[in-house]
Simulated scan of single mutants.
Amino acid sequence: MGKQVSISVIRRLPRYYRFLGELLRGGVHRISSRELSGKMGLTASQIRQDLNCFGGFGQQGYGYNVEALFHEIGRILGMDQNYKTILVGVGNLGRAVANHMTFDGRGYRLVGLFDNNPDILGETVRGLPIRPVDELEQFCIEEKPDVAILCTPREATKEVVNRLVALGVRGFWNYSPHYDIALNHPGVAVENVHLGDSLMTLCYKVKDLDDPEGDRG
């Protein structure tokens, strides 16, 4: 990629990908940065700056080829990688993630589920049996997963992460952010999902609707 791209730009890429996919399904083949800005709530200048981080995609007077840009952003995001993925912690949250998240087409392939609850071991979720966490080592040696989704209880997260890193897992989608994976394992990629933080942010936004001149610090 050549130069370091800011995390704020990277976080906008999935949104570009989603909007471009909707445009494609709607039969739109070409779009200008100004038209795209109107649909996404970003400025045309911001869109051009973001996309220029990865090379020149638009043409003066023509705009962007929607299909070409859609596929190129997908390539940049790694949608074609098909990373082997396991999920640890198949309680209510983990089961919901396993059942409802679309992994195929987003760069992942779910290959294993693990939990310590004896009451659910052997159950099948999304066509995969729930295995005991004791089998992590053997499974990882055989399957060599790249990514782990963590829906583990707070007290179990540190041990599970340490074991998985030692087994070669390189990425974590972490729903258990009480243990700072990135600090303790700087060589892996981590995306923390803070559901509570997101809910509190929404609370502030709703409060701000009622009191726009309120707490400004």
Score class of each variant (00 low, 15 high):
residue 61 G to C: 10
residue 45 S to Y: 05
residue 41 G to L: 11
residue 24 L to C: 08
residue 49 Q to Y: 06
residue 66 V to W: 09
residue 63 G to Y: 03
residue 35 E to A: 06
residue 55 G to T: 02
residue 30 R to G: 04
residue 25 R to H: 14
residue 24 L to W: 06
residue 71 H to A: 05
residue 34 R to N: 03
residue 43 T to E: 01
residue 54 F to M: 05
residue 62 Y to S: 03
residue 81 Q to R: 15
residue 24 L to I: 01
residue 65 N to H: 08
residue 66 V to C: 04
residue 60 Q to T: 15
residue 50 D to P: 10
residue 41 G to C: 04
residue 24 L to M: 09
residue 76 I to Y: 01
residue 33 S to Y: 02
residue 36 L to A: 07
residue 47 I to C: 06
residue 79 M to D: 12
residue 61 G to F: 05
residue 95 R to P: 00
residue 27 G to E: 12
residue 72 E to F: 07
residue 35 E to W: 03
residue 69 L to D: 11
residue 87 L to N: 01
residue 46 Q to L: 07
residue 93 L to T: 07
residue 90 V to Q: 11
residue 35 E to M: 02
residue 38 G to Q: 04
residue 30 R to H: 06
residue 26 G to Y: 13
residue 29 H to M: 09
residue 60 Q to Y: 13
residue 32 S to V: 04
residue 35 E to R: 14
residue 70 F to R: 14
residue 68 A to M: 14
residue 75 R to W: 09
residue 50 D to W: 05
residue 99 N to G: 02
residue 69 L to V: 05
residue 47 I to L: 14
residue 57 F to Y: 13
residue 94 G to P: 01
residue 43 T to V: 09
residue 91 G to A: 07
residue 79 M to H: 12
residue 62 Y to F: 07
residue 55 G to M: 08
residue 31 I to V: 15
residue 47 I to N: 09
residue 61 G to M: 05
residue 87 L to C: 00
residue 40 M to D: 01
residue 41 G to F: 13
residue 85 T to R: 07
residue 77 L to N: 03
residue 89 G to F: 04
residue 92 N to M: 05
residue 63 G to C: 07
residue 85 T to M: 07
residue 81 Q to E: 15
residue 40 M to I: 04
residue 47 I to M: 06
residue 72 E to Q: 07
residue 48 R to L: 15
residue 96 A to F: 05
residue 39 K to R: 15
residue 45 S to V: 15
residue 55 G to N: 04
residue 94 G to W: 00
residue 57 F to S: 04
residue 72 E to H: 08
residue 93 L to N: 10
residue 67 E to I: 00
residue 26 G to W: 10
residue 90 V to F: 10
residue 67 E to Y: 09
residue 75 R to V: 14
residue 66 V to S: 01
residue 92 N to A: 10
residue 37 S to I: 03
residue 93 L to G: 10
residue 72 E to D: 09
residue 85 T to Y: 04
residue 92 N to Q: 08
residue 33 S to R: 00
residue 48 R to Y: 10
residue 58 G to L: 02
residue 30 R to Q: 15
residue 60 Q to W: 07
residue 41 G to S: 08
residue 47 I to E: 07
residue 51 L to T: 01
residue 87 L to D: 00
residue 81 Q to H: 12
residue 32 S to H: 03
residue 82 N to M: 11
residue 35 E to V: 02
residue 74 G to F: 14
residue 61 G to E: 02
residue 99 N to A: 06
